[in-house]
Amino acid sequence: MSATARDVKTPSVLADIGVARGAAIAALIVLAVALQSTLLARLTLLGVRPQLVLVVVVILAFLDGERVGLVTGFFGGLLIDLLLPGSIIGLTALVYTCIGYGVGLFRQFAPTESVLSPVFGVAMASALAEFGYAAMAIMLGQPWVSIGFTAKVAGLVVLYNTLMTPFAFPLVRRVADRFRPERVHTWS
């Protein structure tokens, strides 16, 4: 029996995540949103709140790649949008989808053993997410969002999110690993 790379069936997104793991990640996202809107919303840095959901999305993308990253980014962002009154639904979902994909794609260039890789990833992703959201918000008719305000928010979110990553990373990895489905590669 011989096999080539073409014969290896790559797993689908659903197989990448798995049902039990999907439920666990969904619960993790809900938990992150709840924490972000309660305890973390009171522990602000100069009035700026950390974005724990983004941290979770980036860590999952870093651990499992672009497809898991973009799917969790979409649903995490959508949940935030739905909880924000009067905001444009789909905007955070769009930004987090691109962030999840980007982090998952570029993780191959990061040293896997370095603890600084996810921290650096979160810092870059936080800055991109804040500026991306602000740019989209201005384009979609929210003129009060200024460059100065966005720069202040982005700087403090980068700092806050980066400080949270060493604590969030082991917890998210534990959940991601615990429900990881067996990967079965069939050879025809």
């Binding site: 949103v33 709840a34 972000q36 809107s37 309660t38 919303a41 009171r42 700026v48 709140r49 974005q51 959901v53 935030i80 909880l83 924000l84 009154p85 009067g86 905001s87 955070t92 804040e130 959201y133 602000a134 918000a137 929210q142 969002v145 928010v153 979110v157």
Partner: peptide, 9 residues
Amino acid sequence: IGRAPSNYK
């Protein structure tokens, strides 16, 4: 019981 989970709302 909660606050808007965003820095823009």
